[in-house]
């Protein structure tokens, strides 16, 4: 055996270091996704049950709204959210939530436990960005079943509305779904990072569910004496009302001047949320004291 020849490990390491950072991170993410899929496929029956579970919940919610539209032609007077417009809104909610639930939720749920048990030490020792690692190391493939459900629901709703979105709308829609995912992820990782300071943050985690609950309805329903302040707070300060509303508007109707300005604001808000959550995560890590040693 010639000792001058590089070993297989050295070749792999050299190849990896020769790659640019985005492609390295892309390769690592693909590895995470692949490993998660392999694990899911090892327990296929469980995977199928999880898919059925996710679809059942969505069918139940859809059933609830079908029931509501048995009694009313629209959500709010003159809001434009008729039955199928609202179903397109619901489909957008599903797109955003299924992505968050597939890629981020299982990991941020795990983060609190990693902090409590000291398991975060292992993540900190790895030669990769810690936030990237703890946010994406596990993919819950079964949650993506709702993504397909949402695609069918959106297609069906648009057919029923008889509205064909133009190319700009079709191109902007995935961008704004991505913004919605970014905003929700920011809130989620920020709350999860507070586990480092608080030790236990179950309530704050519940808080995420309760706050994002506001994003599941059209912005127009928050009006009146109490609704308007909520509307302003959840649009401009904690912009959860932009998460679904902006992409849903793009799909179901032409945007007015105010909606276009909010669409621009959503881009700024996403960037700000991601930057802020990154800062909070970094600050929280500085306070981390290993629990294992």
């Amino acid at each position: 055996m010639n000792s001058e020849l590089p070993t297989r490990y050295e070749i792999r390491t050299e190849r990896a270091s020769a790659r640019s950072a985005p492609s390295r991170y892309g390769a690592v993410f693909l590895m995470f996704a692949r490993n998660s899929l392999v694990r899911d496929m090892t327990f296929r029956a469980n995977f199928i049950i999880e898919v059925i579970s996710a679809l059942s919940w969505m069918s139940m919610y859809l059933g609830f709204y079908i029931l509501i539209f048995e009694y009313t032609p629209s959500i709010g007077a003159g809001t434009g959210w008729g039955k199928y417009q609202f179903f397109a809104f619901l489909a957008t909610t599903l797109f955003v939530n299924s992505i968050v639930e597939a890629f981020f939720m299982p990991n941020t749920e795990e983060l609190s436990e990693l902090i409590r048990s000291g398991g975060l030490d292992f993540a900190l020792l790895k030669p990769i960005d810690t936030q990237f690692l703890v946010s994406l190391q596990r993919v819950d493939w079964s949650s993506l079943a709702n993504f397909l459900f949402a695609a069918c629901l959106l297609g069906y709703s648009l057919l029923k509305i008889g509205h064909v979105p133009g190319w700009p709308q079709l191109l902007l829609y995935p961008l704004y779904v991505g913004c919605g995912v970014g905003m929700l992820y920011s809130l989620m990782i920020t709350l999860a990072a507070t586990s480092i300071w608080l030790g236990r943050n179950q309530t704050l985690y519940d808080f995420w569910f309760y706050i994002t609950n506001f994003s599941r309805y059209p912005r127009e329903i928050y009006s009146g004496t109490y609704g308007t302040p909520l509307n302003i707070a959840f649009t401009y300060i904690l912009p959860v009302l932009l998460v679904v509303n902006v992409p849903a508007w793009l799909m179901v109707r032409p945007l007015n001047a105010e909606e276009w300005s909010l669409a621009v604001y959503a881009l700024v808000a996403t960037a700000a949320c991601l930057a802020l959550s990154r800062w909070v995560f970094g600050r929280a890590l500085l306070s981390y004291r290993s629990a294992s040693s």
């Binding site: 009313t72 959500i75 709010g76 309530t203 519940d206 309760y210 599941r216 127009e220």
Partner: peptide, 23 residues
Amino acid sequence: GTLMRFLPLVTQVFLWSAVFAGT
């Protein structure tokens, strides 16, 4: 946690208000 458990009720109040406004 108990106080927060009422937060979904807030959205329900607005939802049903909008449903009644529509119907």
